[in-house]
């Protein structure tokens, strides 16, 4: 299984437009596959929903706070 790796060519390779992207880690590890893709935003959303609706709780231990707008 001998591939010819061309390190010199690699370093000088003409500028490709391929974007900088994090190394692939399989689709499950994609940022858009996370259980919570934006924890900061969902904290705000959850806070609003808990304070406006009669139910609360989920698969987390939640924080405190009144949340009674």
């Amino acid at each position: 299984m001998k591939l010819l790796l061309l390190p010199c060519v690699l370093l000088l390779a003409a500028c490709s437009s391929a974007p900088v992207q994090p190394w692939e880690r399989g689709n499950l590890a994609r940022p858009d596959m996370a259980w919570d893709t934006d924890p900061l935003h969902s904290a705000m959303r959850d806070h609003v929903n808990v304070s406006k609706e009669g139910s609360s709780g989920g698969l987390n231990t939640g924080g405190g706070g009144c949340g009674c707008y």
Binding site: L3, L4, L5, L6, V9, L10, L11, A13, C15, S16, A18, P19, V20, Q21, P22, W23
Partner: peptide, 12 residues
């Protein structure tokens, strides 16, 4: 991961 400037590796 790619080169620091984002260029891919070129493999023959």
């Amino acid at each position: 991961g790619p080169h620091p400037d984002g260029r891919p590796w070129s493999v023959g």
